[in-house]
């Protein structure tokens, strides 16, 4: 299996505060890796360092085996903004706050990168965009502005927008946390379909159920380090370490028991 993403010893400081204290992570093609952790554990920062919306303080990121950036003789990394822009074309990201462009319709949002960045013709881009919107079930909303869409619909458009670039890997940053509870389901369902279709995904979420049913691997982040890592079953139903157990228990304390669910 090809390795799509490799993160080596990533550190990230914000001033005096060290948020990531040495993260090593690898994601293979078609894998869905879910990152769990408490607020402040560094989950979002890790994701944002992956596509260089934040620049890591030290450490390396490899995409399909290629090192991103240049290493100078002293061992520290240098990054050119133009290179980073190219890297971001190969990774897709979906945000908690959607970040759709309010002055463009849904289909224009999805087409935007194809036309402006990849310089495709508008007709080609439109066709690709319509396919993407269709795959997330929103073909009929193509000409609507974001203001007229529900949160769940906006997030699915955001997913379509990221997918339109045919990225090597998709990054999901707590994409359901800002949604009304009844809209969470439709987004998770879309993500599940994508995972089952073989998309390589790195997902930060609080939705333990999604992690359990969809993830190939679960990583628990605590205070800037990978605290425990393993299969969903191991981490979520039988965590070995104390903090993982506290975390899972805390999240499940109000869950409704059902009969016969494995």
């Amino acid at each position: 299996m090809t390795e799509i993403l490799r993160i080596e010893n990533i550190h990230k400081n914000f001033g005096d505060l060290e948020v990531l204290k040495g993260i090593d992570l690898s994601v293979a093609e078609g894998e869905t890796v879910v990152i769990l952790g408490a607020s402040g554990s560094g989950k979002s920062t890790l994701l944002r360092c992956t596509n260089f919306l934040e620049i890591p303080s030290s450490g390396k990121v490899f995409l399909r085996g290629d090192l991103i950036g240049e290493e100078d003789p002293t061992g520290s990394m240098g990054y050119q903004e133009s290179d980073l822009t190219h890297v971001r074309q190969r990774m897709g990201m979906v945000f908690q706050q959607f970040n759709l462009f309010p002055h463009m319709t849904a289909i224009d949002n999805v087409m935007e990168a194809l036309v402006t960045v990849l310089k495709q013709s508008r007709s080609d881009a439109r066709r690709t965009a319509m396919d993407q919107l269709d795959s997330v079930g929103l073909a009929d909303k193509a000409d609507e502005y974001p203001a007229r869409l529900s949160g769940g619909q906006m997030q699915r458009v955001a997913i379509a927008r990221a997918l339109a670039m045919s990225p090597d890997i998709m990054l999901f940053d707590e994409v359901t946390s800002a949604l009304d509870p009844e809209l969470v389901g439709e987004v998770l369902k879309t993500m599940r379909t994508l995972a089952e279709g073989g998309l390589t995904m790195l997902v930060v979420t609080h939705e333990l159920g999604f992690a359990y049913h969809v993830a190939d691997r679960v990583v628990f982040l605590h205070e800037g380090r990978i605290y425990e890592e393993g299969s969903p079953k191991n981490i979520l139903t039988d965590p070995k370490k104390e903090r993982t157990r506290d975390f899972v228990r805390g999240h499940l304390q109000f869950s409704i028991p059902s009969h016969g669910e494995s």
Partner: peptide
């Protein structure tokens, strides 16, 4: 700020994001 994120995440450069996303708004 999220609009900048949205533009950069789909691979737009600083100038492209400015021109297509930020300034029209």
């Amino acid at each position: 700020r999220g609009q900048w994120d949205g533009g950069r995440a789909i691979g737009m450069s600083y100038l492209q994001t400015m021109r297509r996303v930020i300034i029209p708004q």
